[in-house]
Design a protein around this nucleic acid. Structure first.
Lengths: 200, 200
DNA sequence: AATTAATCATGAGTCTAGTCAATATCGTCC
DNA sequence: GGACGATATTGACTAGACTCATGATTAATT
């Protein structure tokens, strides 16, 4: 036998490649036509896999949407989390976390990929509004982690407060249209929210 | 012709009655079995109408859920809006608005109708998470109205700020479990959020 | 009271998200 | 290199949300 066969076997690599094809196909179609105008069939076809296979990678259409969103935001969030680790207090950490995410959103909007925005700010009666919120939820989790680390909160309390704090993301996203709501104001908002809800 | 025949004709009355039957039936079934375990068929049957008719009153299942929630919260919200009208500043008005809604939520939880809570705090990937948020959205609209009246904000700005402020509702709902998060803290949270995001 | 126009109700039928039993592919051990 | 267990793939199938052509009710008009 030669030294070491690629430890991630062919199977694993195939799986990864397939996942990427799926995300690429879905991203393309969703952005072009809107989430509700695209069927899972069409995504499967575009990714050149069977219907059933698609649901092996994403258990629901909503999860597929999430996969696409996470793909777009993952780098920014990663960046934000790293930056947050450098910070010495909760406020700095949270702002460091949020900035790249907000920037990513701005870029997405600039490139015409507004469907996340539309889902977030649009009619909550529409299907998939909730999934749109989940991308916000990933950031929320990161905020909760920061609160646990810097303020010693328990998980439940941290999650609740994180939800409140992350609402500034909405303002930030709106601020892409309305530049008068500035980052400085956001920071102030985050700070006072921490101070207000936390005992002392 | 006699003076005035009942201006709401029989047709209108029939419609109203039917709507109430639908809401009652749906409310019953949703609370008993959970939203996802109930089909629109079953709601239609329970309300003794045809399938198609149901969708005349609620264009989607989500809208039906919304109808049910609004029905439960309508009185409280009405109460809150009236109380808010008495207040002389935005903060007092908003708190006056929120209190009955929060109380209504507490009562609902006490009576075991926790499915709204579960949808709000549960996995956002589940269907209908977004609709659960919409009940919160009605309060949001009321808050926006207050901001427009008391602070002279334009509609867009008011809507965005209202979204942030209404996030205290989440904390309030969580506080039913976690009594350490008090109303006083909520008030402080609302106040500082107004101060922080509004210029000056 | 008869005619007409408008609105409302209906359920059989369509569309699509999601399942599952059958099949193919991969890794491994003799 | 073949045989076997584990894992991955498939597309025909199911279930349930939602539509639409048809027919029934109601109100307005003569």
């Amino acid at each position: 036998m030669p030294p070491t066969p690629p430890p991630p076997g062919r199977r694993e690599r195939n799986k990864q490649a397939k996942l990427e094809r799926i995300i690429a196909a879905a991203s393309e179609l969703f952005a072009a036509r809107g989430v509700d105008e695209v069927t899972t069939q069409q995504v499967a076809d575009a990714a050149d896999i069977g219907t059933g296979t698609l649901f092996l990678y994403a258990r629901t259409k909503g999860e597929l949407l999430l996969l696409v969103q996470n793909h777009h935001y993952a780098n920014s969030l990663e960046q934000g989390i790293e930056a947050a680790a450098e910070a010495s207090n909760a406020l700095d950490a949270i702002m460091a976390l949020l900035l790249p995410v907000i920037e990513c959103n701005r870029v997405q909007v600039e490139n015409g990929r507004t469907y996340l925005r539309e889902m977030l700010f649009g009619d909550p009666t529409e299907p998939h509004h909730g999934e749109a919120l989940q991308i916000v939820g990933r950031t929320e989790q990161a905020i909760a982690d920061i609160l646990i680390e810097h303020r010693g909160l328990d998980a439940a309390r941290a999650a609740t407060l994180a939800r409140v704090i992350s609402s500034v993301q909405f303002v930030a996203m709106a601020s892409v249209i309305d530049p008068e709501i500035s980052i400085a104001q956001l920071a102030k908002g985050v700070r006072v929210q921490i101070d207000a809800v936390l005992p002392e």
